[in-house]
Design a protein around this nucleic acid. Structure first.
Lengths: 155, 155
DNA sequence: CGATATTCACTAATATATTAGTAATATAGT
DNA sequence: ACTATATTACTAATATATTAGTGAATATCG
């Protein structure tokens, strides 16, 4: 009825970012499903591949998964043999999470399809736009995390 | 260990988009919490404000909420008086979802704080960058939905 | 050294997401 | 009319998200 509603002059930015992400990940989802791994699990596997062993706290910050969610996700991943967990000797609170031969083999099998999908996307949007878009995302994230409003853990 | 891992040449684009969205919505979350409304509920209220009454199917496409999730979300929203649901006369399968005086009053109270937050963000990233970033998101979404891979409902 | 505060992974309860499937209604083609 | 198919909102089961809070371990400070 009121397509100008008056109340809001700005477009819904979080929704736009969500929509953009949905359109991108829609192209990867079939690959993840075919290999029986969830989005969160894959995010963690890829982070560990790129960075090496991490602690849950670091995984949460990197992959944007909250501590309570992480507890269940990591527990299930250990159960199906995608990761292993090991207490640190000098600090019994902390934990080391690392990949297993199985998850390394899995990502080796997935890598070609993932990379092909990135090439598809780049073909659609153009290499130049692609580069500038990554830069824009980095700039946005950098600007927003430089001056956080409250105590929102994000670095 | 292996910070070059070799397997992946492209950065994790869905993760970057997720991180960007998290940094943005982190500034709105305190407002939503203060008014006792969840992210999904607010997305729906704002969509209805902008567009007028919608059917669940349309809400799902617009707000990127799946049909099963929507069932629970709408049910809870009706229970607390944020929306009302009404069957269509000429098609008993379909449904009209519309706002209530209560949700209109709520968004009127929230609007100033929401708008102020957008101004804060724009001040941080710059008006020019802001404009170009919105355009880039539109372009990305447009390019990706123009040639969908499979039958992924998205417009 | 000892009391206090902080950090860390985790649990509990509820909300939402995902995948598969269902019943009711509507439409298309015969 | 009639069968087959499509569409719509929904349920069931499991996974993940969110908010609050816990116990164990460590760090900090008096």
């Amino acid at each position: 009825m009121n397509s100008e509603s008056g109340e809001f002059r700005h477009r819904n930015l979080p929704l736009l970012l969500l929509q953009a992400r949905e359109h991108v990940i829609a192209r990867f989802r079939p690959i993840l499903n075919a290999h029986g791994i969830t989005e969160q699990q894959w995010r963690i596997v890829r982070a560990l591949l790129d960075t090496g062993p991490l602690e849950p706290r670091e995984i949460g910050l990197l992959c944007r998964i909250s501590s309570p969610s992480l507890a269940g996700v990591l527990s299930r991943m250990e159960e199906i043999g995608l990761i292993k967990r090991k207490r640190l000797d000098h600090d019994q609170r902390r934990l080391h999470v690392s990949l297993t031969p199985r998850s390394r083999a899995l990502s080796a099998r997935m890598a070609p399809q993932i990379e092909a999908t990135y090439r598809d996307i780049e073909a659609l949007i153009g290499a130049q736009f692609s580069t500038r878009f990554y830069e824009a995302l980095d700039e946005l994230i950098g600007a927003l995390q430089a001056r956080e409003p409250a105590a929102i853990a994000s670095e």
